[in-house]
Amino acid sequence: MSEQPVIEARGLDLTFETNDGPVQALRDINLSVAKGDFVSFIGPSGCGKTTFLRVVADLEQPTAGTITVNGMTPEAARKARAYGYVFQAAGLYPWRTIGGNIRLPLEIMGYSRDEQRRRVAEVLDLVELTGFEKKFPWQLSGGMQQRASIARALAFDADILLMDEPFGALDEIVRDRLNEELLRLWAATSKTIGFVTHSIPEAVYLSTRIVVMSPRPGRITDVIESPLPRERPLEIRDTKEFIEVAHRVREGLREGMSDAV
């Protein structure tokens, strides 16, 4: 882990100009994410966790401070196709089949037809959707659609995966299953993952590091290195270590709330 960090933010500020005056979405964010990390951002709504992810993805511009992604500016990283982004909703195009949706980034990035076919088959297998290539999104359940959207983000070779509450709209049973799958995927692909959530168990179960944030202004209150092993069966959630980490996250969240009020 002596390589340069994949994501490095120094003194990052972001202020939105709204009709009600400026709103400070991020204040003095300092964070560095190493290659292969699974970093969760957790906090109440308005704490800037999504905004930070969007800054990394060059979808928002910081007002002060510096940020590098793979050693480049976020814009250069976006143009170099350094990351895949998974949004809260699957956002599949209804007029494209599942295969067609996964092919979308590949078409834009100019992969050959054969390469497109190969990669679509590969990522469909990775998210366990083989056989659904020719189905339209409305023929799939919400969980399957979200898996297809993850496959879409994996289809091209980005080594960073940014996920903005990807399982927020799903029920807990489906969510558990997708969490397990995501860990398996992460182990299989050795990608660096940035994951926004507001579920404490989800954050603790998935992450190697948990970034606890608090709102008004959005800032980091705690960064927790998880003592849990990389290999994590669902039962790990009943262990003492897991409960301790979850407790620390909860404390961090409570602290952030109390100085905001």
């Binding site: 990351y83 982004y85 979308l104 980034p105």
Partner: peptide, 9 residues
């Protein structure tokens, strides 16, 4: 969101 997705590509 769909426009943002295109931007990420």
């Amino acid at each position: 969101m769909q426009l943002d997705l295109m931007k990420t590509y």
